[in-house]
């Protein structure tokens, strides 16, 4: 099976049957998954931080790194596959955003990532139909073009679906 592997701050899309899009070990990062039933296209962005304002140069070089630049970048990418550029009709799922135990505000990057992503989605009139967010564990996430199903895995835990 073909795979598109996304690193931190990467985004990608596919409509190839038999292919999957995958990202490894999300800690506080969040994976935003878009599924477009009309064109049978899937897309994913691996967001590391909530706001691009902390490093404009980095966001220009790798927009997927930040929630506010990553989502528009993924939508633009999916538009190349014939998807609606404003995300209309797309199904959204969110995974990741874990936090360390007994954390304080400064270290709640996972929570802030998820919040920032939801705010951006709201601007597009989009909302997640399913989410697997928070907790104190890392997640590896893969989405299949054929089924649109998300499989999550984490060391020491049985795989689960979203």
């Amino acid at each position: 099976m073909g795979q598109i592997i996304l690193g931190v701050g990467d985004y990608g899309a596919s409509n190839q049957s038999g292919e999957e899009v995958k990202t490894f070990a999300l800690g506080s990062c969040v994976s935003v998954v878009f599924l477009d039933p009309k064109t049978r296209t899937i897309g994913m962005v691996h967001v590391a931080l909530p706001e691009s304002s902390i490093n404009k140069a980095k966001s220009a070089e790798k927009p997927g790194y930040f929630a506010d630049t990553g989502i528009p970048a993924l939508l633009a990418q999916m538009a190349k596959f014939g998807c609606n550029p404003k995300g209309k009709g797309m199904v959204v799922k969110l995974c990741g955003g874990a936090n360390v135990m007994d954390t304080n505000d400064t270290f709640q990057i996972g929570k802030r990532n998820a919040l920032s992503i939801k705010k951006i989605l709201w601007k597009y009139g989009m909302g997640a139909v399913a989410e697997d967010l928070g907790g104190n564990f890392s997640r590896t996430v893969s989405v299949s073009v054929d089924t649109g199903e998300i499989i999550l895995s984490s060391p020491g835990r049985p795989n689960w679906k979203l």
Binding site: A25, G27, A98, T103
Partner: peptide, 19 residues
């Protein structure tokens, strides 16, 4: 490092942060 998704396995993020 653990928040960046780079732990050593099942124990990743399973320790207390001393605030």
């Amino acid at each position: 490092a653990m928040m960046g998704g780079c732990g050593t396995g099942a124990d990743s993020m399973q320790y207390m942060l001393d605030t």
